[in-house]
Every structure is written in C-alpha cells, then in structure tokens.
Design a protein around this nucleic acid. Structure first.
Length: 418
DNA sequence: TCTGGGGTCCTAGGACCC
DNA sequence: TCTGGGGTCCTAGGACCC
C-alpha cells in the first residue's frame, strides 16, 4: 500500500442553500433554491431540490412547474451573507491544518502533512466546522488536488462515508476511478468530455492510463498535468497566498431592457466604481479599460471597446470620465440592452511589466512610453504618500528604465517587496 | 416571453522588429 | 516572380472552474 503526501479538499455542502438555512431552521428538510441576480437562474439547491431534478444553472421559468408542484422555497441571492459565512468557515479551517488554500467561496485545500491519523482528523474537522459555523462540509483526502476533488465527490455521494473519503491508497484509486465518469473529473468540461469520448475514453481510469504524449499533442499542457495528477503525481501546488487579480470584472444584467444612453452610462459608471474599488483594495492600478454592452436578443454579439488609459490609474472619476465617452461611442439609439459590463486589464503591481519597446531614442512611441512610465511613477509616489499617511506598511517597490547606445528598451516594473 | 457574475489559463494568428 | 529566420507582443477566442 502506497501512501503519498496528503491533501484534503474541504467543500461546503450546497453552500448558499446551507447559508440561508442557518437563519431558517424550519426549512431543514425542505427543498430550497437560491437564485441569481434579478432572480433569473438557479445557482444553488438543497439536497431535496436536487432530488426533484432541478438542475444547476437552469433559468427559473424552465422549472416553475416543479417549484409550484412541490412547494420549493425560493431565495434571492445574498452574497454579502455568503461571503461573511465563508470567512468564518475558512477561519475555523485555518486553525485545524498547518496550511490552506482558499480555492473558492465554499472550498479550501488543506495541507495535512505531518498529521498522523488523517482520517480521524478529517472527521474532527468536519464536526468542528459544523459545530462552530453550522455549515455541513464534505472532505476528500488524496495525494494530489485532482484526486482530492474526486475523493470529495465520492464523499458527497455515499452517505456511508459520513462525509469523509480517504483516497490515498493506490489500489482504491484504481478501483474507484474505473466507475468515475471522465466528465466529472476536475478540468474536464462538456466539450472535452465529448472529444475524449470519441477516443474511447469514458472513465477517469481510462484517462489516467491513456497515452500522455498523444493527449498532450491533442489537448495541450493542461490536459497533461491533469492526467499526471490522476496518477498521483503532484503538478498543482497548494497556493496559500492569494495572488492579486490579473483582471477585474464588474457586470450586471439589467432587470428590464434598457434603451436610453443616459441609463446605460449610469450603469457603466456604477460598474466602473465597483471595479475601481476592488482594484484599490489590492493596491493595483489599471492601464486598460474595457466596456461591453450586450444587446437583445440573448446571444447577439456584444459591442465592446478596449481603451488604453493615458496613464495607469485607480482613480474612479478619471475612469468614469473615459467610460462615459466610450459608452457614447458604442451606444446605438433605439437598441435595447440587456446587460453592461466593465473590465480592468493590464493591472500593476505586482511584478507586471507595463510596456517594453526596442526603438531609437527619438522614436515618438518611445516618448509615449516614457510618458506612461512617468505616469506610473507619479501614481506610485502618491500611493506611497497615502500609505505613509495612513500608517500602512509600504508593500511595493518600483523599477523602471534600461538603455543601450543605439536602441532603447524601456520597461516599468512594480515588484512586491515581501 | 422568461437566460448570473465572476475568474483562470492556453493557443493561434497577425503585426512588427532585427 | 520568388525569396528568410527568429523572435516578441498583442488580441481574440476557446475551454474550464465556482
């Protein structure tokens, strides 16, 4: 029996539905469903709702008959609440393992190396989270992240396991992967499952034992990593420090279709403000602003524009000023819009190269670039002053510029100090 | 008629440079 | 008319995740 490094995936059961239930204990055994913004789609279901055959992500109108027939209780989503409860769960978990990675609002990978009796420990984790937060969780234990995902799924499926599945044993892996549909493997979506099916690969075991180089050639490096992980070879590390976002998106569907330019501009301005706030909270500035307007009917191509800001910034009013102009350009009178979105790209810091150029010193493009770098420097200086004023430790440092006689390469880089 | 809001990584192809 | 190699950067789009 081979026993490798031990990783656990802790996943909250029916998370949003469980959160709502905390405040409605009378709904303990009732079918309940949580809806997306504007109450459009089903985004979470209690076990009872799953049993009724209400699928994940389905538009509400498609299951209205089931809802009425079985008296399913509906909730609008309350992300502030779910975020708060998630933080409590993660805090509890962090006291029960040497290291953890918060993977999503309802999942965390735990490093359990150094813990001797892992299975009893996992049961203890499960009971503690339940007792301290009220949230039920399932735990999958395995040598790699991908296998721990498999284990977690099995833990959820078989009640006899009491919420914990230990998949460290390689013979057990072989046995259980045999019946595990390849489409349920982490990283295999609908498209890939279809393509694998054509190759005669229908189970996780067949995928695990397939020819690596063939898969690599056909599907790329992501697939190769996935296959190796299924074999118990660790390719994905635990990332306990959350990396700063590389792009920030803020978008919303309108409750009703919108036609007026002013209304669209107001909505976009609001999204810009939300995105910029998130940008500042990770101490970043953005160089590129992207605006998307989604017309009706559903599925119609979005109108979009991408704008390089004259200098990278995190300033809300400057971004809103630019965004309003862009919206005016994209907007078509008489068109009905269902959704608007904003995306911030080319974020810095940390460690993001801002620009590079190989050109003669008099090249106007180089002048432009130097101007941009000056802009970054200025932003950076102001940020530092603000940190100092607020007594915050200065988290970033900056480097810029590099020259050679004939040509000049310039680049700016904001690097993390610690 | 009614259809969420975030994110990530990878690849292909074109522009551009020496 | 045919004729180069090697490289970077950017963008769009596809696939996936929760």
């Amino acid at each position: 029996m081979t026993r490798a490094a031990s990783l656990a995936l802790v996943d909250c059961n029916n998370f949003y539905a469980s959160c709502e239930r905390l405040f409605r204990p009378d709904l303990l055994h009732r079918a309940i469903v949580v809806l997306s913004n504007n109450d459009g789609c089903v985004v979470a279901r209690s076990a009872e709702a799953k049993m009724l055959g209400i699928p994940m992500g389905v538009p509400l109108h498609q299951v209205q008959h089931l809802i009425r027939q079985h008296g399913v209780v509906l909730f609008s989503s309350n992300y502030a609440l779910y975020g708060d409860i998630s933080r409590r769960v993660m805090t509890v978990l962090s006291t029960l393992a040497p290291d953890l990675e918060v993977y999503s609002i309802d999942e965390a990978f735990l490093d359990l190396s150094g813990i001797r009796d892992i299975e009893p420990h996992a049961h203890m984790i499960r009971a503690t989270v339940r007792q301290w937060t009220g949230i039920p969780v399932s735990i999958g234990i395995a040598p790699t992240k991908t296998l721990s995902k498999v284990a977690n799924r099995l833990a959820k499926k078989d009640p006899a396991l009491k919420g914990v599945m230990d998949l460290r044993d390689s013979r057990l892996q072989e046995q259980l992967l045999r019946d595990f549909p390849v489409g349920d493997v982490w990283g295999i979506g609908r498209r890939l499952a279809e393509k694998l099916d054509v190759l005669g690969i229908g189970t996780a075991l067949q995928l695990r034992d397939a020819d690596t180089s063939l898969l690599r050639a056909r599907f790329g490096v992501v697939m190769e990593r996935l296959v190796r992980e299924l074999r118990g070879e660790k390719c994905l590390d635990l990332e306990s420090q959350p990396a700063p976002k590389q792009q920030i998106i803020a978008s919303r569907s309108f409750g009703q279709p919108v036609t007026g330019l002013h209304e669209v501009q107001e909505a976009v301005s609001h999204h810009v403000a939300r995105a910029a706030a998130r940008l500042r909270s990770q101490y970043s500035i953005a160089q590129t602003l992207q605006i998307q307007l989604y017309p009706l009917p559903f599925g119609a191509l979005a109108r979009q524009a991408s704008i390089q800001l004259s200098q990278a910034t995190a300033d809300t009013s400057e971004m809103i000023r630019v965004a309003r102009q862009v919206v005016a350009g994209l907007y078509q009178p008489g068109q009905r819009y269902r959704k608007a979105g904003v995306m911030l790209l080319d974020l810095a810091p940390p460690g993001v190269r801002q620009a590079s150029l190989f050109s003669a010193p008099e090249d106007p493009k180089r002048q432009q670039l130097m101007h941009t770098l000056d802009g970054i420097n200025a932003q950076f200086g102001r940020a530092m002053l603000r940190f100092a004023a607020e007594g915050i430790e200065q988290p970033w440092a900056m480097r810029a510029g590099k020259r050679s006689p004939r040509y000049t390469t310039c680049w700016g880089e904001l690097a993390r100090v610690r």
